[in-house]
């Protein structure tokens, strides 16, 4: 079911995530985070969600890395005698407990790609797949849902991005991005 390639990808994602959390050098941490985002983007493509993968690769691996690098350019490097951060055991215990509680919901999910999952058998999904091309004349059903059937939601998303930019300007007391 899981090919060695997928297994390797998952191991790589986990390694990058742990490295991001544990590396003491912030620059190394950011590079590990960038690799993690890129691997997650590949994972989305494995899960047949290329639109999400494209977003993750562009935003997570590309823009966020540049913004993080710009931010740490204004900080000083700690004198790094160790490579890895010391693990805070109580915090680790809380994190593991939280993940364990959340992981109980995993058993309620259908298997990835299962034919009888609600995603595949739902009437709304069937309607979109049957009628998206006739009604909207676009071949990508994801775009049809985003910009036509759920256009109002997408307006909300676009305005959230706009509001984030405006909010940053207000916080920094500027009127232009400079």
């Amino acid at each position: 079911m899981t090919t060695p390639l997928e297994l390797g990808l998952l191991v790589f994602i986990l390694t990058c995530a742990v490295a991001t959390a544990l590396l003491r050098d912030v620059l190394g941490s950011i590079i590990a985070f960038s690799a993690y985002s890129l691997a997650i983007a590949v994972a989305w493509v494995f899960l047949r969600a290329p639109d999400v993968g494209l977003t993750e690769a562009a935003v997570g691996a590309g823009v966020m890395t540049v913004l993080f690098l710009l931010t740490i350019a204004k900080t000083v490097r700690p004198s790094s005698d160790r490579t890895l951060e010391r693990v805070d055991l109580p915090a680790l215990a809380v994190s593991v407990a939280l993940v364990a509680v959340l992981a109980t919901t995993l058993f309620a999910l259908p298997a990835a790609g299962a034919a009888d999952s609600a995603v595949a058998t739902d009437d709304v999904t069937a309607y979109y797949l049957d009628n998206a091309y006739e009604e909207t004349q676009v071949k990508n059903a994801v775009t049809a849902v985003l910009a036509a059937y759920r256009g109002f939601d997408t307006l909300g998303e676009a305005v959230v991005v706009y509001a984030a930019g405006v909010g940053l300007l207000v916080v920094l007391d500027r009127e232009v991005f400079a």
Partner: peptide, 16 residues
């Protein structure tokens, strides 16, 4: 409209 992508992804790439 016809393949993967869209305004959000394309906008980020143009911003890049």
């Amino acid at each position: 409209a016809d393949s993967s992508g869209g305004g959000f992804q394309g906008g980020v790439i143009v911003g890049t």
